[in-house]
Design a protein around this nucleic acid. Structure first.
Length: 227
DNA sequence: GCGACAG
DNA sequence: ATCTTGTCGC
């Protein structure tokens, strides 16, 4: 995969915030028909407290079969602290390397984290979508920004996440007796599409296959290279 | 000012 | 997110 916008990572938190405000203007909400999707990339990162390293994992699965096609992993040094709202500047550099190494061209990026449900409407899912000019959406396990109510306990039940006057995503119950997930628009997708895609990538687990497999792969990388 | 706060 | 084993409950 190729970057559409180059990126500097030697930024202070203030500069990072300014960059988010600027790039957030480039986000486009658009329809992404399910029939146009053949490959989905799942993206996640794990850390080692011991070696202070980070393990970025990207998997590519076919759609709608959800069969694993490719994996790319990057081990890197932590270059930025964890600050809520600035996750991209901690994980982005390694994730970009992994995405650039991809041999398959995904039609959609599914990112562990938020998209528009972000203090400046520009979470890591939106950021990756914009700099690669690729449809993207966020799949988070906790809320970050926006007004929301909890959905019912039936799988598939959902409620909107509202920022200002705009709906930017869903709180989605993927599995009974499990905490809901937070699905948000990243880039070049819309509310309806993001819900449909996530629903069709669910199997028997709380998380959709792309991010679930990426999460497992990043843990695999850590156990293999944490020394 | 206070509380909340992705991974 | 990470450190860490067993254990309770659907």
């Amino acid at each position: 995969m190729k970057l559409a916008i180059k990126h500097s990572f030697s930024l202070s938190p203030k500069e990072a915030i300014a960059l988010q405000k600027k790039l957030s203007q480039k986000v486009k909400i658009a329809k992404l028909p399910l029939r146009k999707i053949r490959l989905i990339a799942g993206i996640d990162v794990s850390y080692s407290k011991k070696t202070k390293k980070l393990f970025a994992a990207v998997v590519v699965v076919s759609f709608p079969e959800l069969e694993l096609q490719e994996r790319q992993g990057i081990v890197d040094e932590v270059i930025f602290p964890y600050i809520p709202g600035l996750l991209f500047f901690r994980e982005g550099k390694a994730v970009i390397k992994a995405l650039e190494a991809l041999k398959n061209e995904p039609d959609l990026l599914m990112v562990d984290g938020h998209g528009l449900a972000h203090p400046r409407n520009f979470g890591i899912a939106s950021h990756l979508g914009v700099i690669f000019d690729k449809p993207s959406l966020g799949v988070a396990k906790k809320p970050l920004s926006g007004k929301l109510i909890l959905p019912g306990n039936k799988p598939g039940s959902k409620s909107l996440i509202i920022k200002g006057n705009e709906a930017v995503g869903w709180v989605l119950r993927t599995k009974a007796q499990c905490q809901p997930i937070y699905v948000t628009i990243g880039h070049l997708v819309d509310l309806k599409g993001s819900y449909e895609i996530v629903l069709k990538t669910l199997t028997k687990y709380r998380l959709p296959e792309p991010t679930r497999l990426a999460h497992a792969f990043s843990n695999e990388l850590r156990s293999q290279f944490d020394n």
